[in-house]
Simulated scan of single mutants.
Amino acid sequence: MGTNGLNGLRPSSKNTNKDVQDKVDTAAANVVSTSRVLKPGIFAPIPTFFLDGSEDLDLKSFATHVVRVAKAGVGPLIAGSMGEAIHLTHSERTTLIQTARHALDDAGLTDVPLIVGTGTGSTRETIQLCKEAAEAGADFAIVITSGYFAGALANNRKALKAFFVEVAAKSPIPIIIYNYPGASGGIDLDSDLITELAEECPNTAGVKLTCGNVGKLTRICATVSDPGFTSLHPRKNANAPFLVLGGFIDFLVPSTYANAHGAITGLANVAPHTIAKLFELSENTLQDGSLLPEAQRLQGIVARADYTIAKASIAGTKSLLQKLYGYGGNPRKPLPPFEPEAFKALWNHPHTQELVKVEKELSGKLKA
């Protein structure tokens, strides 16, 4: 894969946005509606990178990273939780979408779809963000439940359902339901509600379960992964099947056997080749049981690393990217930077080192 490994695609030391922005402005005028296919697999919530001092968008590093993960076989998700969507303006989201789309197209990755986070406080603004995302070149939106008024919404099933029904009906692009209690005031959508939305809302294209509930995933898959589901509940867009995606990567092998469709995982930013390989192995075990021990071995490495690195959150992930690829930087304030001593402990942790070793091997950078 050429420049696809740990040392490839390093941005210029000048770290300027001008060249990238000029290309984006030209491409934005020519954006056309596309219908890229949403396929089972691994997706990475791409961090948003900021320039030191100003906290302006670092578009060069962002474009570099989007292409890096996509070349490894991982789909990019823009302006999600890892992307600090809550810290972005509408115009910044648009700029990131246009930058990502242009970078992918320029790299010959024209078939790679863009998933974009559009969840926010109100139903009205969420719908507006879906429209703006579509206009900027997004193929799919991922929508989190608003958690600011969780006290009023958490036990109001009717209101929760109405939110997703209205957003799905009015969004120009298919939406993915994002169930993340940790970022939505503790609101945790149950399997019955998610299944109902899949059945009744033809413009839904899946769910991300960052609740980590394998039982919930199994129950949803029992309906939506059934061969007859699509004929009974056809999608508005035939290229947008309803995918059930884990929000963590530590149970990918078990979820494969529940007929799930992959995962959206922050760890795929750090080790995209490894996570893509794990998905490939997991899927192939369904036809060749002899591959299961290797899938389980790699799942163990990934699960241990995910447990260790996820606790470092956004700042820790960015610090690892800085160490591995030469870009990363700090989150936007008020999120604090990752302290040097904490990073030293994270980098030297055996779980991290084991993952880095596998990633180097799979990306072709480890010399024999």
Rank of each mutant, 00 (worst) to 15 (best):
G364W: 01
V167P: 02
I220G: 04
L6Y: 03
E55L: 11
L321C: 05
F251E: 12
A342T: 10
P340T: 12
C130R: 09
A295T: 03
H233D: 10
A44N: 09
A72Y: 00
K323S: 13
Q21M: 14
D58N: 15
A310V: 14
P337E: 12
P241R: 03
I173T: 08
A205R: 07
Y180C: 13
I78A: 02
V24R: 08
T123P: 05
D111P: 06
F229N: 08
L77A: 10
K23L: 12
A85E: 07
T285A: 04
L346I: 04
A133E: 05
E280G: 10
T352K: 00
N213R: 10
A138M: 08
A27H: 14
F140K: 02
T48W: 05
A168F: 07
R68W: 02
V358G: 01
S184K: 07
W347S: 08
D19I: 11
G206F: 00
S225L: 02
S171T: 03
I309T: 08
G108D: 10
H87E: 12
W347H: 09
Q322D: 13
Y307H: 15
Q296Y: 08
T265W: 01
D19F: 11
A312W: 04
A368R: 14
L366S: 14
K277V: 04
C221S: 15
K60M: 13
T95I: 11
I173Y: 01
A198P: 06
L114G: 03
N203D: 02
P11H: 07
K208Q: 04
A295W: 00
E125C: 02
P331H: 09
L362D: 08
V358H: 06
N330S: 14
A141S: 15
T89F: 01
A85L: 11
D22W: 07
H351W: 10
